[in-house]
Amino acid sequence: DELEKRVKKIARKLNLSLDQVEEWLKRNNNDELVEAVKRLKKK
């Protein structure tokens, strides 16, 4: 979905793993995208 695409884009842009992106999003209080990261990690 759109949020998952955004997460992947962030990960690529910042050259981070999904775990690192998740931490980064949590620090930025971006719950919506944190949920998207969790969905991606399950895939």
Rank of each mutant, 00 (worst) to 15 (best):
K26S: 09
D19H: 07
N15Q: 11
E22W: 09
L3Q: 11
R27W: 08
V21A: 03
K9I: 13
D19T: 08
K5I: 12
K8S: 11
L40K: 02
L3Y: 10
E32R: 09
E23H: 08
V37Q: 02
R12V: 10
D31C: 15
K38W: 03
L33C: 05
S17A: 07
N30K: 15
E35P: 03
K42N: 12
E23C: 10
K26M: 10
L18Q: 02
L25I: 05
N30F: 15
K42E: 13
L14T: 02
V34K: 05
D1N: 11
E35T: 05
K43E: 07
R6A: 15
V37Y: 03
E4Y: 07
V21M: 14
V7R: 02
L16S: 00
K9D: 15
K13Y: 13
K41M: 08
N28P: 01
K42C: 15
L40H: 03
A36N: 01
I10F: 03
N29W: 06
N30I: 15
R39H: 06
D1P: 06
E32A: 13
K8T: 12
N15T: 03
R39Y: 03
K5E: 15
K9T: 12
L33E: 02
R6Y: 14
K13S: 11
W24Q: 00
R39T: 05
W24S: 00
L25W: 02
K13W: 13
L33M: 08
L18K: 02
L33H: 01
A11I: 13
Q20R: 05
K38Y: 02
A36K: 02
Q20V: 05
D31Y: 14
D31W: 15
V37H: 02
N30W: 15
E23S: 08
L33F: 03
L3R: 06
E32D: 12
S17K: 06
L16R: 02
D19Q: 08
K41V: 04
I10G: 00
R27V: 11
L18Y: 08
R27K: 12
K9H: 14
L3D: 11
L3W: 10
E23R: 07
K42L: 09
V7A: 05
L14R: 04
E35F: 02
V37R: 01
K43A: 08
N28D: 06
N30H: 15
D19V: 06
L16D: 00
K9Q: 15
E2W: 14
L25E: 00
E2R: 11
R27A: 14
N15C: 14
E35C: 08
E4A: 06
D1R: 13
D1L: 13
D19N: 08
D1Q: 09
L33R: 01
K5Y: 11
N15V: 04
N30L: 15
A11G: 02
L18I: 07
K42W: 04
V7Y: 03
V34T: 07
N29K: 11
V37I: 11
K9W: 15
N28I: 12
I10H: 01
V34H: 06
R12T: 12
L40F: 04
K43D: 06
